[in-house]
Structure formats: structure tokens, C-alpha cells
């Protein structure tokens, strides 16, 4: 019995058993922490999503129903989805452009690369003042508009807030994605380009038929990592506009925070489970969609 199990797990040799034992010891501290802070409490979160606020009475899917029917949740979901579907394609395109440009001028683009990457180190808190200076009603942007004889825009109190957030997101994350693209570009073999060159292909054709297809597996990964960073845009939104910003930028992150403040634990649990599920499906889809076809 024991030996069959060992065989099945590939632990029949003494060495393999010793290695597995060592692996366990190496992993133990990290696994204990991850188990204690993430995995076990997440199971508890799933359990609580089916119970009442005090965690004592089983209520079935009532919390899920209440979450899905909640107007704030619907608004926040739509906004988050809208934000993601707009900002990620923009970010992918912009950062790919930066990567291609930086490579094209090599070795001169070193400083540019550093500058593009720098915003990821700039703390959001340091930006708040500037954002207010730029986008408040009497801010620099409106001052500029007024001087040109145009109507001022109420950036924080209108749907323009959404675009301010998009620009902020692009500003902050282009550099990170640019590095990912550069790594992808490094992986394309020279011989492909040489062959295209011999065939007399122009840069547009080469880009269309060599660079883009070769980057296909990178697209999925960059998109997934960008999806995650898009959740961090809450920092800017929160610091500039507080817990209840204009409707157009009220996102899931605001909702989670507000429910937390009100200690709506069962709803929060149900929403967290839903979010995890949707993200997981999304990530698997993206991975499948852009799988490396050469493998």
C-alpha cells in the first residue's frame, strides 16, 4: 500500500524521498504564511459568503443575490469593466510603440527608457497635489482652456474624471509593459528579419508578418499583468476624489472599501468570491487565447 503510493508519487527511490523532504522544509515557512493569511481565510471567506453577517445562520445564495441586485455593485462592475476594456488596449498599444521606438534608436534610448519606467516608482501620494493642481475646477488645465477661450471642464465632477483616470493609468504603467514587450522582442530571432530583408519587405510588412505574430504569446501575459495593475488605479481615484467619487469612476474597489467600512461582511465575502472567479476565468481565457502556438 505504502509502496504503491510512493511509486505513484515518484518517491520510490531514497534520494527522491530525501529531496521531497528537503523541499517541504524549504517551503514550510512560506506555505504556513500563505496558508494562514490567504488560503485558509479564503476558504473561510467562501463559507461566510453563504452565511449571515454574524457567520452563524446558513442563508444559501442570499448574499450573492443581494450583491448582484445591488445598484452600487452593478454600477461599479460596469465601470470597472468599461475601464478595463478601454485602458488595456490603449496601454498595450502605447507601451508597444514605446518599446519599438526605444529599440529602434538603440543604443541612444537608454535615458528615455529610464524616464518611461520612472512613474512606477512615483508614489501616488506624491502626485495628489499635482493632480489637484492640474484638474481641479480652477486648475492648470482649465486655466489653459480659459486662456484659449474654451469652456472649462469640471474634471472631478463629470464623466471627464474617467478619462483623467485613464491618462493617469497610462502614464503610470506604460514603462512596465514596455519592459515586457522589450523582453518579447529580444526573443525574436534575427534570421527571420534577415530573411524578410532579403525578400525586400518594408518595415510595415515586417512588423505585420514577423514582429506581431512573434509577440502573440507575450500579448496574453502583458494583458494579464495590466489587468492586475488596473486595479491599483483605485489609489489615484481614491486619493483625488475620496470614497464617493463621480459616478463614472466609482469602481469595484470603492465598493469593496465602502462595504468594508460598513462591515457588510457576507456581501463582501460573496463579492470577493465572485471577483476571484471572474478574474480566474478571464486569466485562463487570455492565456488560452494567446497561447504560444510554436510550442
Amino acid at each position: 500500500m505504502v509502496s504503491r503510493l510512493r511509486q505513484k508519487l515518484g518517491l520510490n527511490s531514497r534520494l527522491a524521498r530525501r529531496e521531497a523532504g528537503a523541499a517541504l522544509l524549504f517551503l514550510l515557512p512560506s506555505l504556513l504564511g500563505i496558508g494562514a493569511f490567504f488560503l485558509l481565510p479564503f476558504l473561510d471567506t467562501i463559507r461566510r459568503s453563504f452565511y449571515d453577517v454574524l457567520g452563524q445562520r446558513f442563508v444559501g445564495v442570499a448574499s450573492y443575490q443581494s450583491v448582484l441586485q445591488n445598484q452600487a455593485f452593478q454600477l461599479a462592475s460596469i465601470n470597472t469593466a468599461r475601464f478595463i476594456t478601454i485602458c488595456i488596449p490603449l496601454l498595450l498599444a502605447l507601451s508597444m510603440l514605446l518599446a519599438l521606438l526605444v529599440r529602434a534608436v538603440k543604443p541612444a534610448g537608454r535615458t528615455h527608457k529610464t524616464l518611461f519606467l520612472l512613474p512606477m516608482a512615483v508614489p501616488v501620494a506624491s502626485l495628489v497635489l499635482l493632480w489637484q493642481a492640474l484638474f481641479s475646477d480652477r486648475g492648470l488645465v482649465n486655466g489653459f482652456l480659459a486662456r484659449r477661450g474654451q469652456q472649462p471642464v469640471s474634471f472631478m465632477e463629470s464623466s471627464a474624471a474617467f478619462w483623467v483616470l485613464i491618462v493617469t493609468y497610462l502614464w503610470k504603467n506604460s514603462g512596465y509593459d514596455m519592459i515586457l514587450w522589450l523582453a518579447g522582442l529580444d526573443g525574436i530571432s534575427d534570421s527571420l528579419y534577415d530573411a524578410a530583408h532579403v525578400d525586400g519587405a518594408g518595415w510595415l510588412q515586417t512588423f505585420r508578418f514577423i514582429t506581431l505574430p512573434s509577440l502573440a504569446p507575450t500579448v496574453g501575459l502583458v494583458a494579464i499583468l495590466s489587468l492586475l495593475s488596473s486595479f491599483n488605479v483605485f489609489r489615484e481615484a481614491y486619493l483625488v476624489a475620496g470614497s464617493y467619487p463621480h459616478d463614472s469612476i466609482y469602481q469595484l474597489q470603492h465598493l469593496f472599501n465602502n462595504w468594508f467600512v460598513k462591515l457588510e461582511i457576507s456581501r463582501l465575502c460573496a463579492a470577493a468570491v465572485l471577483l476571484a472567479l471572474v478574474l480566474l476565468i478571464f486569466i485562463l481565457l487570455l492565456l488560452r487565447l494567446f497561447r504560444d502556438r510554436t510550442e
Binding site: L9, P41, F256
Partner: peptide, 27 residues
């Protein structure tokens, strides 16, 4: 190290890495 469950563990670490704070906040 090569040991049973390595792929699974790696998968768990990757999924955890990819989850935003809003998912892990309650836990």
C-alpha cells in the same frame, strides 16, 4: 527540487500573485 505537487504549488503561487487586493482583503 523535484517533488510531487510541485506544479500545483507553483500554480497556487501564480494565482495568488495575480489576485488583486480586493480579493484578499477579507481573508
Amino acid at each position: 527540487f523535484r517533488f510531487p505537487g510541485r506544479k500545483l504549488l507553483l500554480g497556487i503561487y501564480i494565482v495568488l500573485m495575480l489576485m488583486p487586493f480586493q480579493v484578499t482583503m477579507v481573508p
